[in-house]
Design a protein around this nucleic acid. Sequence first.
DNA 1: ATGGTCGAGTATCGA
Length: 256
Amino acid sequence: MRIATWNVNSLKARLSRVEQWLTETSPDIVCLQETKLSDDAFPAMAFSTLGYEAVHHGEGRWNGVAILSRLGISDVVDGFAAGIEPDTEARLLTASCGGIRVATVYVPNGRELGHPMYHHKLTWLARLRQHLEATADSTTDVVVCGDFNVAPDDRDVWDATACHGGTHVSEAERSALGSLMEWGLVDVLRLRHQEPGLFSWWDYRAGNFHRHLGMRIDLLLASAPLAQRLSWVLIDRNARKGKLPSDHAPVVAEFS
DNA sequence: ATGGTCGAGTATCGA
């Protein structure tokens, strides 16, 4: 079973590249973020043609998340589970696909340290943990993947000194991500690859991609029993190259 | 020269 996550930075602008990538990569389950589409504008037919059922939770101009599956889709939840303070934005979508509880997440960026949106980011991550507690239990295989807007440790940024003092690397953000993972999730890329410099996002500006100035902020987290079935995992840098790329590369993992 | 580019939409804002 092959599972992928990709922040596409506008599915409208990226559709032809996404279609091409799906054909080449053949994932069974795909989590998308930043579709920037309303539900009405979501191109379900394009994915159906490629063999995917799809669900989308969007708002139009910003945010927007989707799940594509070749293994069926059921028990869909838009946003946080009942009983948790609702999100005013479309950043979370959960569904069951082929026996796995799958959540696609687009964590708030945070803007800058101390900004109201930074505090919102921290509480959002705490609510995501509550959501997992409400929507899955220890007997369920779970995947939580997407754009976390947090680099888990200093190996995950091009220069820890240069990044210090900004968002994505603060202790509070890393701690909030850690709390989420303590629910019982494993960062599967680090099961196979320990080296620094494995990035999933590069700013469009200043030729950062070609200068290797990036961060690993797109994570594929799996519950421990599922993580033990990991066959391989990679970040597909090739998808960041060429014409009209997203500023994020997909992360793909294969489970036996 | 302390920016640099995208994508939303059409003036700026968000990332």
